[in-house]
Design a protein around this nucleic acid. Structure first.
Length: 648
DNA sequence: GTTTCGGTTCTTTTT
DNA sequence: GAACCGAAAC
């Protein structure tokens, strides 16, 4: 492979080739669904490397870990080892890499902890409680966090968003601001950043240190950005700064597939790209190799109504096959039965289960199907659950010890660790923490003695294991072997604890063994912890890998299905109130437009066959039956775009 | 004063 | 599940 020149004209179509071989300077590639967006990016990387550019000077930014991994692998397949040295990863990943080096420039120590959403939630809860904002009507941590996050990623003040959001409720915007300030202060004190801080501090680093910014501009001669329509203002600003005037930046995206506005993504970044970079070259990819024309007709029709977008129509190249099916069903149970039967029928026809997928708007929409599948026992399936691998209780328990060893200021880790011991709860843990002066460096003998003195007798047992690990920490260079720490902690304490505490202890212990294997990929404890915090989706990715080998039916949210494709797609609950969700519709016109884009994403995942399942009723939480109309997205489509089937 | 236990309720989407 | 609340147990 290596050394062999790539024949771009033979391997790419004319649209793709034009984008891949675009001249230097700013480039915008509008790539509709299934038109070879990833292929184009990967070949662009190869083109640059073949053109003599040092891979070290190329920065490839993606949105998800999965995309980063896939592209690096494919690039390696094209140009071989020459690609190593390429800077590739998610925005968060890159920001973290820069911030570890220059943490002091934004007022942090370089061993800062990255808070996952669960940590952030706990911290905000503490802040609300400290401020005595415990009223039933005061917004919950999740609501507050999404507001803080939106403020951070759109560079808006919290107070403005709070006034807007709570306009018709009794919530005082000032109280929300107070919690926000307390939260910011506590993160500083803990030497911790949440996901948004990585981005905002990454931006601040470049804004307030022009010399540093210039240095990285020199370093990155070429910047490539995937899924540009999903960037938020902070990310876009960061890319702009790193590119600099006259720099080379190539962004790829599809405004039709912008589905992350709820966390600050702004598709205006892509719409206004030609204005921000007036000499930008713009390329369109609209030839779709993925889907049969009937599916593309529906996709084109469904999205056409959305305003303010780069108008483009997917061009089919495949032969006509069959129209998407619109299946009327009585309720969720009938829907589940229908999917199971139809999947089995298709299987008999020659499709593998791994070539089919069941998609839905929200995780809980899969409940009936999940139950039916586990009762049925004939179709192997995986579900990308709502809880992330690294946010499960047992993983976080074990990692609390690692985190405290890495960052002695990590109060959350200390709390979590202490609450594992018998007869030791949050109150006592806080007392000990305060007694230590807000810092617990377990490597120091004096610290360990002080902790030991504060413990109730039954807690000693668990503590002894930690004490021994901490005492050996420097002597045995455990900082270079996080797996060994986990192993010792489990052998000495956690295995017994898990068996006493969890119904499904064995499964959880298996997870921990898996975690131990995973640590071998990392040279140090710090490297492992950084990566772990940013790999929120490890389980989903493992399942994708497993699915490719085994014949397994996958159940997934539409969001998680983005960028993937299957021969057969079942879309569930295409009914009013479910998809689009009531919330989005109530919010604004823009909310509905985004739901429509999500619907578009779902449709365009399908290659051969698409089933839109429309249950007509649903049991409410009080047991009453709720009647549903078909989704507005179906009603606004011309009926001859689909074949109507009665199911069940 | 704290911790633990047993019930109830609620699930949008993710780095 | 897992967060929350109230009541029992240490």
């Amino acid at each position: 492979m290596e050394g062999q020149r790539i024949d771009y004209a033979a391997e790419l179509n004319a649209e793709q080739q034009a984008a891949v071989t675009a001249p230097d300077g700013p480039v915008l590639v509008i790539a509709a669904a299934g038109t070879g967006k990833t292929r184009t990016l990967v070949y662009r990387v190869a083109y640059l490397v073949e053109g003599g550019h040092d891979p070290n000077s190329i920065l490839l930014l993606t949105f998800t870990n999965r995309a980063a991994q896939e592209m690096l692998e494919r690039a390696r397949g094209l140009v071989g080892g020459a690609v190593s040295g390429l800077w590739g990863g998610t925005f968060h990943h890159m920001a973290n890499r820069l911030l570890r080096r220059h943490a002091a420039a934004v007022g942090y120590q370089s061993d800062y902890t990255i808070l996952d959403s669960d940590d952030a939630r706990r911290l905000v809860r503490h802040c609300s409680q400290d401020l005595k904002l415990t009223d039933k009507h005061f917004p919950k941590p999740d609501v507050l966090l999404s507001l803080f996050g939106l403020a951070a990623s759109t560079e808006q003040p919290v107070v403005a968003l709070a006034e807007d959001r709570f306009e018709y409720s009794k919530v005082e915007p000032d109280d929300v601001v107070a919690v926000h300030e307390a939260y910011e202060e506590r993160k500083r004190r803990l030497n911790a950043m949440d996901f948004d801080d990585l981005l905002t501090n990454g931006l601040r680093l470049l804004v307030s240190n022009p010399d540093l910014c210039e240095r990285y501009r020199q370093q990155f001669g070429h910047i490539l950005v995937d899924e540009y329509q999903d960037t938020n203002p902070v990310q876009a600003h960061w890319v702009d700064l790193l590119t600099g005037p006259g720099g080379n930046v190539l962004v790829v995206g599809d405004d039709f597939q912008s589905i992350y506005s709820w966390r600050g993504a702004d598709y205006r970044n892509i719409i206004t790209f030609p204005e921000r970079y007036p000499n930008a070259h713009v390329y369109y990819l609209v030839t779709n190799y993925r889907s049969v024309p009937e599916i593309l007709h529906m996709a084109n029709a469904c999205i056409a109504g959305n305003p303010k977008q780069f108008q483009k129509t997917l061009q089919a190249v495949r032969e006509p096959h069959e129209r998407p099916h619109c299946v009327a069903l009585q309720d969720g149970h009938h829907q589940a039965d229908f999917i199971i039967q139809e999947a089995r029928r298709l299987r008999a026809e020659g499709y593998r289960y791994s070539e089919m997928v069941v998609l839905y708007r929200a995780h809980y929409h899969a409940m009936e199907l999940q139950m039916a599948l586990s009762r049925d026992q004939t179709i192997p399936y995986v579900i990308t659950s709502g809880i992330r691998f690294f946010e499960q209780g047992h993983i976080k328990d074990v990692c609390a010890l690692l985190r405290l060893l890495a960052n002695p200021g990590d109060e959350l880790a200390f709390q979590r660790l202490c609450c594992l011991w018998k007869r030791l709860g949050p109150k006592t843990a806080l007392k000990i923490w305060k007694g230590l002066g807000g810092r617990c460096d377990l490597r120091k003998d004096a610290t360990r003695e002080r902790v030991a003195q504060g413990l109730p007798a039954p807690a000693r047992e668990g503590w002894n294991t930690v004490e021994m690990i901490a005492a050996d920490f420097d002597r045995h260079e455990l900082a270079k072997d996080p797996g060994e720490i986990i192993h010792r902690f489990m052998a000495g304490f956690y295995e017994d604890y898990a068996r006493e505490t969890f119904e499904n202890a064995e499964r959880r212990l298996e997870d921990l063994n898996e975690l131990m294997r995973y640590t071998t990929n990392f040279p140090t404890l710090d490297a492992f912890l950084s990566e772990m915090a940013l790999q929120t989706n490890l389980d989903a990715e493992a399942e994708v890998a497993a699915q490719q080998q085994e014949d397994v039916l996958r159940l997934s949210t539409v969001h998680q299905a983005k960028g993937l494709e299957w021969k057969v797609v079942f879309l569930c609950w295409v009914a009013d109130g479910m998809f689009p969700t009531t919330r989005a519709v109530n919010e604004s016109e823009e909310g509905l437009a985004e739901e429509r884009r999500l619907f578009y994403v779902a449709i365009t995942r399908a290659k051969d066959a698409l089933y839109l399942c429309v249950p007509r009723q649903r049991r409410g939480r009080d047991g009453t039956i709720q009647y549903l109309s078909p989704s507005a997205f179906i009603q606004e489509l011309s009926p001859d775009l689909m074949s109507v089937v009665a199911g069940g």
